[in-house]
Computed example of a mutant assay.
Amino acid sequence: MAATADQRFPEPGLELVVSGWAVSSPFGLGRAGFAEGLRSGRRAVAPVDPALWPVPYAEAGLIPGFDIREVLGRKGTRSMDRVTGIAVATVGMLLADYGRSLAADPEATGLVLGTSGSVQSIMDFTRDALTGEKPYLVDPAAFPNTVMNCPTGQSAIRHCLKGPNVTVSGGAATALLALQYAARLLRGGHATALLAGAAEEFSVQRARLERAAEHGGDEPEPLGEGAALFLLEQGAAARAAGREVLATVLGSRFRAFQDPDRAGAALERCVVDLLAGAGVLADDVALVVPGGSPGLLGKQEDAALAGVAGVRRFVRPLLGDATAASAAFQLAAVLAEREDRPELADRLALVTAVDRDGTVGATLLRLN
């Protein structure tokens, strides 16, 4: 989408802000339950019913009672898988709370969603092709679920978002990558507003694969699920529409590592470059929300952040390993903390992520 002559799209260098958010988490659907759960320190990971979830885990962080048809209705949900339902529901909550004025220009509003897709859908479809009487006698309605961008596309179709539609995947750093991608689209003049965030599902096949994966010798954590979406737009546009500026995005940095022993050095370089680019000092940071991985990667992250000031907040022990949605929950925790602590106004918050597949990332926000 090219910028029009009247320059309605943001120009490079303009202030990009978060002016809304929505979350579906093991604390329930909505911001209030999420904020209350964090405030109380309540652990939302709970025993799973083995009759419903025959998985090699005793506990998981499930969205309580989440049923796609009960939340979204029967129309258009017959073949919808869990991650798509979670994404569609969360996008709907965000638009219901903040997006009325966006409906006037749907072609300028888009979605950047981070997700790993649905391994359950992929493996179920493959199984049907291998075990059916004929390989092509599969349910064609189930095929779209096997494509990673299905949650993003279905969310846009259901909620009439006609702007850029992008799917991003990057493990624990997924939401930070999605936010950075959305910022680039806005600065490039491809939209006036973007919903950016990430979603993850709990499933039998994901649980089995995660249990068998390499965890550096550590016992696998309970898995979590959910989504968090953020409304990203130009500050002037948010204020003109009467939306409160919750935070200003000052930037993000990402690096790769091959040896887990080098993860900390890679993340530290990200943080140093990020703070320098924003013209601030490590002592200026008031709030830090790390990924909080267990074992070696967690120790590497702690070492990388040793020189950064600020109160630490951890959400992973409360919600489980949400994989693609991990950093989305961390960003949501920053906004929830700001609501609880007025003294954080005009202070800096840092969110970091370390993924076992070799990606580190950091995002810096100025809270309003």
Rank of each mutant, 00 (worst) to 15 (best):
N149L: 09
D302V: 13
G292H: 09
L281W: 10
V71W: 11
T174L: 03
Q154F: 13
A2Q: 15
E59R: 07
F254P: 00
L29P: 14
G163S: 10
R31K: 08
L364Y: 09
S40F: 02
P164T: 01
L229A: 05
G170I: 05
D218A: 09
A32T: 15
A324W: 04
L62P: 00
I86P: 05
T359C: 09
W53G: 02
A266R: 06
G188S: 12
V71Q: 14
P10K: 13
V308N: 06
N368Q: 14
G61C: 01
K134S: 12
S155Y: 00
V166R: 08
R356L: 06
P106I: 03
Q120P: 01
L72Q: 02
G13T: 05
F9P: 06
L209Q: 11
E343W: 07
G30A: 01
G226C: 03
L319V: 14
E337M: 05
L195A: 11
T146E: 12
F257C: 05
N145V: 07
T192P: 02
H190K: 15
A286Y: 06
L297A: 05
P317E: 01
I86A: 01
G30M: 02
A2P: 10
T77N: 05
S326T: 10
G292C: 09
Y136M: 14
L229W: 04
